[in-house]
Amino acid sequence: MRTRLSGALLLAAAQVSTLWVVLTLLLFAWLGRPLWQDPAALASLAGFSWNPAAGQYGLGAMFAGTLLLSSGALALAFPLGLLCVLFVLALGPRVLAQLLRQVLTLMAGVPTVVYAFVAVWLLVPWLRDSAGVGMGFSWLAASLTLGLMLVPTVALPLIGVLAPADASLAPVCDALGISRAQRLLWVTLPAHRPLMLSVLLVAAGRAAGDTLIALMLSGNAPWLPHSPADPLRVLSAHIALSLATDTESTAYAAVYASSLLLLAWVSLSHLLSRRLVR
């Protein structure tokens, strides 16, 4: 009896996420009505021009912005995170490795708003005045900051899982005369590809969903950037910005469309990567 009850509880717990995702989808689909009921506005959604005053509600630029910023940030965070994992588990001296692990843990608790805040004061002026990158607030500035913010998201779960796994391989590898670095690089890591993918996905989700770094650093221009030095606007920042709009307007309804689009993108990327891993 007790077994059956705890089994049922476990299964119920597993469905909380399902429940919430479905609820959110239904809620937003319902709240977005003003937009779905306006054919002209609906048709403009897929475009690249966001100008509510002219009845244009194109989310194309913001969607592209989300893709560009996420990929920029992940391109930095994933290799950097992986290298940190290697350093902590095998390559670094014990003291430094422990220190790095603690720094990573601490970094996970630094609010994104603090990263963004510091970057506005240090990174942006540096990019503009020393590196000569446009006005500073840009795809590049946001990518670098977001990338740094994501390093612990990549590294910590990998460390948590790989440390015991790596240790369990130690006796065999020692007997074969394989060094710690070699063991990690050629045995442990390749054995955990699915894990790395899932970590990458979590990081990608955070990259797409982060609001404050994008809002404070990307420059938020609702257009397609021509280079990393240009500003761009991402969906999450667009949602935050639009929350100030007239709540009865079509532009406000576009908040829900943006949310749905963002969710659609996240699920699509999950589906795609699942296919790839098979």
């Binding site: 942006v124 607030f137 809002l215 404070m216 938020n220 240009d230 920042a237 910005l241």
Partner: peptide, 14 residues
């Protein structure tokens, strides 16, 4: 191409 910032404080900082 204007940089769009989200608040009065942010525009001052910039």
């Amino acid at each position: 191409n204007a940089t769009v910032v989200a608040s009065n404080g942010a525009i001052k900082t910039a």
